[in-house]
Design a protein around this nucleic acid. Structure first.
Lengths: 109, 109
DNA sequence: TTGTTAACTACCCTATTTGGTACTACTTTT
DNA sequence: AAAAGTAGTACCAAATAGGGTAGTTAACAA
């Protein structure tokens, strides 16, 4: 869902909506965000809770979500490695909004 | 964003959220819905207002949105053809929810 | 007869997203 | 000396999304 569309007739606030969707759209985004909404989790645990994601995809999604500021990564200097992922304050604010997004689904049921 | 994930640990209401996103995610979906939110439009007019979409993609997006029940298609038996697209009642209900979705974008600004 | 017009479809191609899996690094355990 | 344990990365492949454009149709105008 990429590409430059900045020259389109301006529909007010379209950019904000697109930013929102850029955060939650993606096959696994929602799952990851919702899982972390309940607790801090280690990489391996997330992987376990989402049978079906490949390691490669999970790692890259986590990296993206951290870059977006949705979650933070805390690595402990241990062997074997231990890394914990937690929603940021901003990330936590997404949760109630997801409730609103549900409404669209409800309409079309 | 497809693929079977029905065997995942149940996060309540995940399915509804996914249904919602299935409606609004996509490079042009939002534009089309917002444009039709203001007025009924003919195919050619939508195409004109969205420089950048290919006919192929626009046609297929419209078809999908009609199938989803977001908008309806009215074809007149004329030559050359005339076809009008209008949001359904359900489709109209999406608009206020988009306002909520904006909030996520606002958080990450 | 030829050209126009509008809303597509058919066909093919590129780009982006997602998936699979072997490999790495470094300690502790066997 | 070999194996286990964790969080990845590298590299390649498959699937899905999106793009480009010629062709189709039927009536009417020139």
């Amino acid at each position: 869902m990429t590409g430059d569309r900045s020259d389109l007739p301006l529909v007010p606030d379209l950019n904000l909506i697109n930013q929102s969707l850029a955060i939650v759209c993606g096959k696994w985004r929602l799952y990851i965000i919702l899982l972390l909404g309940k607790q801090t989790l280690r990489y391996g645990k997330i992987s376990e809770m989402l049978p079906g994601v490949s390691e490669k995809v999970l790692a890259s999604e986590l990296k993206t979500l951290v870059a977006l500021g949705v979650m933070k990564r805390k690595a402990y200097a241990e062997i074997p490695p231990r890394v914990e992922y937690t929603l940021t304050k901003k990330g936590l604010l997404i949760l109630p909004i997801l409730k609103q997004i549900q409404e669209i689904g409800r309409i079309f049921n």
